[in-house]
Amino acid sequence: MKKNDLTSMGKSFTKYILIIGALLILLDFTFHRHEYFSFAEIYGFPAFFGFISFVFIVLLGKWLRKFLMRKEDYYDQ
């Protein structure tokens, strides 16, 4: 059992995902992507939207911890 199994897995996973992401953006330039709303047809719009949404969800969730997080035995007290 190698010590850095997870690290190396993470690295190769990151590499492939980045390649796939780049390909998807390039694909966008090869054809006209029809969407229900015209502004969503901008190159890479879903990619941009996905990235921003994800960051927003995580950071807002993290911030909400201030208000929503209590100790594990909160309801037992």
């Binding site: 995902i17 980045l18 796939i20 992401g21 998807l24 953006i25 966008d28 890479g44 719009f45 879903p46 990619a47 941009f48 939207f49 996905g50 990235f51 921003i52 949404s53 994800f54 960051v55 995580v58």
Partner: peptide
């Protein structure tokens, strides 16, 4: 695109 870039995020 949505999913892959969310994973990248």
């Amino acid at each position: 695109q949505l999913l892959v870039f969310a994973i990248i995020a």
